[in-house]
């Protein structure tokens, strides 16, 4: 009777299946990789050093820089689809590597942002920071001048103090560094530069001349020791001579051509 009895283990997987599922893979990895591993150990220090350098440089590789020169407007799309229009002589920097962790750009100059809805979006300037969630707004930061205009949505502007502005409001940094709310009937004028139209309301003449120099990429000599205040507008469709005439006429100034540039002199 006991001759007929046998032990037959019940395997979950046959040896063929075990070969196919496990050994086929490990035996396909060539022995070369094991040798390399020994080399890696030997030169571990150098590999580590190289890795640290690469990791340190990595953010630089992903750092994007957009610069518009004088007389130039640039439109640029950020990784999330937000659009930035750079006015002349503006620099914008952002990092596409950490973009999806923190949306943010550094900016110097003037730019109009149309930010896609999403996480906090920050514009850093040397005069202050602007924080939004998803709106359209204009940031001006040149020299000590800092102004932010909100076209839609809400914008938080932070410098020495913090101001939250809404649609058709703006802030400007006063001489003492404090942010002051400004409200103009038509905030659209502050972003009309996108369409090559420049509006000025009670702006010192030297600031207007600076803007003309930026937009037309010309040098203009001008005695700054006055306190002329200009209100008016010009369009880039006009020639530089026409613009200078429009701007200088109310103050009794005359335009003279000087080499590649111009000089404004009293009549």
């Amino acid at each position: 009777m006991n001759d007929k009895m046998k032990i037959e283990p019940k395997w979950k997987r046959s040896s063929e299946e075990i070969w196919r599922d496990h050994f086929e893979e490990i035996t396909s990895v060539d022995k070369v990789s094991r040798l390399d591993f020994a080399l890696i150990k030997k030169y571990a220090f150098y590999y580590a050093a190289a890795a640290i350098v690469v990791i340190a440089l990595l953010p630089l590789l992903f750092s994007k820089n957009v610069v518009s020169l004088r007389g130039e407007h640039i439109s640029c799309t950020l990784p999330d689809g937000s659009v930035v229009n750079l006015n002349a002589e503006t620099e914008l920097t952002y990092n596409s590597l950490i973009w999806f962790i923190s949306r943010g750009v550094k900016m110097n100059g003037e730019a109009y942002f149309e930010v896609e809805k999403g996480a906090k979006f920050t514009v850093r300037t040397k005069n202050g920071d602007v924080r939004v969630l998803g709106t359209k707004f204009n940031v001006f930061s040149r020299g000590d001048e800092f102004a932010v205009t909100c076209i839609t949505g809400r914008v938080e502007v932070k410098s020495e103090n913090k101001v939250i502005i809404e649609k058709n409001e703006g802030v400007r940094m006063a001489n003492n560094g404090e942010l002051k709310l400004i409200s103009e009937p038509d905030m659209g004028n502050t972003i009309s530069w996108k369409d090559d139209v420049f509006y000025f309301t009670s702006v010192p003449l030297n600031k207007v001349i600076e803007e003309v120099m930026r937009q037309y990429d010309v040098d203009i000599e001008y005695a700054e020791n006055n306190n002329y205040i200009y209100t008016g507008n010009f369009s880039k469709e006009s020639t530089i001579e026409e613009v200078l005439e429009i701007v200088s006429l109310p103050f009794g100034l005359r335009t003279e051509k000087r080499g590649n540039g111009y000089k404004l002199v009293s009549q």
Binding site: P9, S15, F23, S28
Partner: peptide, 24 residues
């Protein structure tokens, strides 16, 4: 190197086929 690797695999497969179930 590659050829040696292939040969080694064949030998190992043979050992496996002969003894895996017996050992198990």
């Amino acid at each position: 190197m590659l050829k040696a690797g292939k040969l080694r695999k064949e030998e190992f497969k043979k050992l496996f086929d002969t003894y895996f179930d017996a050992i198990r």
